[in-house]
Design a protein around this nucleic acid. Structure first.
Lengths: 265, 265
DNA sequence: CTTGACCTTGTCGTAGCGTCAACGTGTCCA
DNA sequence: TGGACACGTTGACGCTACGACAAGGTCAAG
C-alpha cells in the first residue's frame, strides 16, 4: 500500500498520516527504492487504533501514552478524566445556549446584545434624554452589568428598580439637567450643595446601605490592587474612572452624596 | 486608567487588551507623554461589549463584524447560526460520552480500547490460537471495525456471529491450521483446491450473499479510486492489501472461495 | 542610586492538521 | 521520445486566542 491508499482506507488525509509519523504516533514503514513509504496491514491497524482514541477526544499526546502503556491501568484514569472534562464542556455549552436564547428573545424588542436582557429592560425605563450625565450613568450601568457575576447582577439591578417608577423618572430628568449645568462650574459653586442634598434624597434607602457596603468591599476585579479610595469616600476604580469623565464640581456633588448616604446607611 | 486597571476592571489580562488592539477590535486610546495608553470609560464599555460576545462563543472576527454591523440585522443570523453550531457540538460530545461509557464498561473485562466493545466481544469468541492466518484475519476484522461506520458495523458483526458457535470454532481452528500449511506452498498445490472447498462450506450462507454484494460496492473509503479488482474476484483495497501479507497459494485459496461464494450468492 | 512595579514592542509556542511550494517518479499516450 | 498528469517526498507557513517570555523604558518610594 502507498500512503494515499492507506489514508483512504482508514479515512484520513495523507497529511495526517505523515503528521502522525512526525509525532512518532505511527512507526515509519519500509521505503521502496524510490523513497516511497510502503504500508502493510499492521500499519493500517495501528493507524486505525490511533484514530479511534483520537476521535474519542484524547489529544495525540495522550493517545500515544495510552497506546504505549500496553493497554489498561492508566488508560482508565485518562478516559475517566476525559469523560469528566466532556461533561464540563457540555455544561458550559448549555449555559451559553441559555444565554443565547435569552438574548435572542430580547433582541426582538431591543437589539442591544451587549448587555444582559434584564439590564436592557432597565435601561429602557431609566431617565435618559440628551443629558450627558445620564449617558455616563448608563455607560457605567452597562459596564457593571457585563463585569459583575450573575449572582451580584440580579441584586444590583433590583437596587435601581425604584428609579424606574414614572415619578422617579421625572425627578431624575430634572436632576440630570441640574448635574449637566455643573459641567463647567467651580467645585465651590453653591448649586453643588443643594444638588447633592436633592440627589441623596432621590436615591432609595436600599441603595444607601448597599452602596456603603459595596464601595468598601467590592470584588477584586472591580477594585484592582493599587486602586485606593478617592477623596476618602471609598469606591476605588469606579470613582477613579469617573473622575476623568466629569467635572470637578460634579465630582464634588458625588462626594457629598456618598457622605450623606454613608450617614444614612 | 492605565492598561492594567482597565484589564482588571473588565476581568481580562493586559495581553488580551493589547491583542484586541492589534486585531482592531478595540480602538487605540490616547497615549500619555511617556507612551502609556490612557483609557477612559468608553474604552471599558467597548471592551466589555467585546467580551460579552466573545464569551458567548463568537470568534473574535465574528465579534468584530457583529459590533461593526451597527446592532441588529445580521447579528441575529450570526447568533442563530452560533446556537445551531453549539447544539451540534453538544450532540457530538454526547455521542463521544456514550462511546466512552460503553468502552469503560467493557474495559473492565477486556482492556482493548482499540476496537468497539461488540467487536472485542466477538474477537474473544472467534478461533485464534497460534495461527498466523488467524492473526491476519483478526487484524482485518479489527481494522474493518474501526473503519466502518456504526450502522454497517452491527450488520457486519452479525455476519460473523455464526462462526463463534463452539463447533464452528473447532472447525475454524483446523481450517486455519491447513491454511498456515500453505504459507510456503505453490499456488498449484493440490491442497489448495480441497481447502477452498472446505472453507467455502464452512462459511455461512449470509456471508456469501453479503460478501458478493459488498465486494462490488463497498463505501468509498474502503475502495479508494484506482484500486481495481484483483484477479477478477472484486474486493479492491482489501484484497490488494492482503495480497502483500500472505503467500500466493493462500491467495489462490481465497480466490477460489470467493468464486464459490459468488456462485452461491 | 537602586529596587520594584509598571509600561512598551516583538517573537515564539500552543493542536492538529490544511495548504502551498519546489521538486522527484512513474505511467500513459500521441 | 517527449510531455502531460497523478503520484510521492520534505519543508515551511497559516489558523485561534492568547500565555510566556525577552529586552528595554518610566516612575515613585526607600
Amino acid at each position: 500500500m502507498r500512503i494515499s491508499e492507506l489514508a483512504a482506507l482508514v479515512g484520513v488525509s495523507t497529511r495526517t498520516v505523515r503528521h502522525y509519523h512526525h509525532l512518532k504516533l505511527l512507526p515509519e514503514p519500509e521505503r521502496l527504492a524510490n523513497g516511497y513509504r510502503e504500508y502493510r496491514l499492521r500499519d493500517a491497524v495501528a493507524l486505525a487504533r490511533v484514530r479511534r482514541l483520537a476521535e474519542l477526544g484524547l489529544s495525540l499526546d495522550e493517545t500515544r501514552d495510552a497506546l504505549a502503556d500496553d493497554q489498561g491501568r492508566e488508560l482508565r484514569e485518562v478516559l475517566l478524566e476525559l469523560d469528566a472534562d466532556l461533561a464540563r464542556q457540555q455544561e458550559k455549552i448549555g449555559v451559553r445556549r441559555n444565554r443565547l436564547a435569552a438574548l435572542l428573545a430580547e433582541t426582538d424588542l431591543h437589539p442591544d446584545s451587549t448587555v444582559s436582557p434584564e439590564m436592557a429592560a432597565m435601561l429602557r425605563d431609566l431617565p435618559a434624554g440628551s443629558s450627558k450625565s445620564a449617558e455616563i450613568d448608563r455607560e457605567l450601568l452597562a459596564l457593571m452589568d457585563t463585569v459583575a457575576d450573575p449572582a451580584d447582577r440580579a441584586e444590583f439591578i433590583d437596587l435601581f428598580r425604584p428609579l424606574t417608577e414614572p415619578e422617579a423618572v421625572a425627578r431624575g430628568h430634572a436632576l440630570y439637567a441640574r448635574l449637566d449645568e455643573l459641567a463647567d462650574a467651580d467645585p465651590g459653586d453653591p448649586r453643588v450643595t443643594t444638588l447633592a442634598v436633592d440627589l441623596a434624597a432621590y436615591l432609595p434607602d436600599e441603595m444607601a446601605t448597599a452602596m456603603v457596603a459595596n464601595l468598601d468591599s467590592a470584588p477584586d476585579h472591580m477594585c484592582p490592587p493599587g486602586a485606593d479610595s478617592v477623596e476618602n469616600t471609598g469606591g476605588g476604580q469606579w470613582l477613579k474612572t469617573m473622575y476623568a469623565e466629569v467635572s470637578a464640581a460634579q465630582i464634588e456633588v458625588f462626594r457629598r452624596v456618598m457622605i450623606m448616604l454613608k450617614e444614612r446607611g
